[in-house]
Structure formats: structure tokens, C-alpha cells
Amino acid sequence: MEVTLRGAVFRVNQARMTFGLQLVYGPEVAGPIPEQHYDTIIEAFNGYRAGVKALVRGTGNYDHQSRLSRLESVEQISILDPLDVPAQLDDFRGMRAGWLDGEGLAPSQAGLDWLADRFDRCYPNDVPLPYLYPTPEGGVQAEWSLGSREVSLNVNLSTHKAEWVWVDVLTDAEAEKTLNLDDVADWNWFAAELRRMAEVIQ
């Protein structure tokens, strides 16, 4: 079965040409090192302690409980941007209620799946990637620092609504807007806002 995995290369066996991938959320899996991808796998391995993650596409073997047990082949591997959105969202999947010193709701798996899918479908490649954080209410807050503007998008994973807010720390100007993230037009709107803010500082 074709798989797309995000994880850290924590082990390399050069004699056997195999590597171990620690998924951002999930098990550890082993796989073969194709010669053409050797350098990239070593780069990811060397960056393990710095938090470097890789995107691996290939075919996987599953056990009798339908769990991924091994990578059968690796077709493609690349180093992930540190702000890769699916990888950031995967970081939240192991959270439990009470994560914030006894308070705090955990983001739902379905909500994280939805948000990852929306970013994949609707977020342009030419717009700065956000820093993502969990909120005590069980949502996700995306943040950008663009010049003198602090921008945030507070996403409710249940309603799919989001509060878009920016504050200019030099002028105290600010703006806010409620968005419907099931509407691609709203994605286009805030992507255009981010693009405009990013262009001003270049």
C-alpha cells in the first residue's frame, strides 16, 4: 500500500542499507535505503537531534491488525520545512485533556485531520508557513510575525470557524475578522492578506 510518512530518521545501518523512521505521531518503522536517496537520509539522520524531519513516500507492509509494520520500498524522501503544517499538527495528536497544568482540552483527531486537509487543499505555496500551537479550548492557533505585525488565526476545530486578528506593535493598528474555513474564498482572502504583509517587509 502506498504511504506518505512524516518523521525523524533516528537510525541508519550503512552495512545493511536500512534506516529507522520515528513517525511524528505513531510507531517507529524500518525501511531500505535506496542508493539515490542515501545522502538525504544521512542528512535527516544527522539532523535528528536538531529536530529535522523528513517526508517519505513509498510502499508499506501492514500487520494483521492493519498497523504499518515496515516500509517495503522508498520512492521519494525529502527534508521537511521545520514549519511543515501536517507535521506540526501531528505533534498535537498525542495530547490529552488537562495538558495545560491540569486544564486544557486536547484537539480532536477528526479536527486535526480536517485542518490538515484544508491546509493541503487551500493554502498557497508562496505564503509564509505559520507557527501552530494548541489552545486551551481544544483548537489550534496559527501565528505569523510579519514585520511589525503579529498575526493570528484561532481555529475552532468543531465549528470550522476561525478568528483572524492582527496587531501592529509599532502603531497599535489592528483588525479582526471571522472566517469560515470550509469556504475556499476565506482561505484566499487571508492568504492574500498574508502575502501582502510579507511583500511589504521584503
Binding site: 514549519l83 506540526q88 500551537y133 494548541p134 489552545t135 486551551p136 510575525s145 503579529e150
Partner: peptide, 11 residues
């Protein structure tokens, strides 16, 4: 949970 690539959230 409120650190990402060395940057903190306003939260």
C-alpha cells in the same frame, strides 16, 4: 506545547 522552533505563542 507553546514553543515552536524556538518561538513562543502570544498565549
Amino acid at each position: 506545547g507553546w514553543v515552536r522552533e524556538g518561538r513562543i505563542t502570544s498565549q
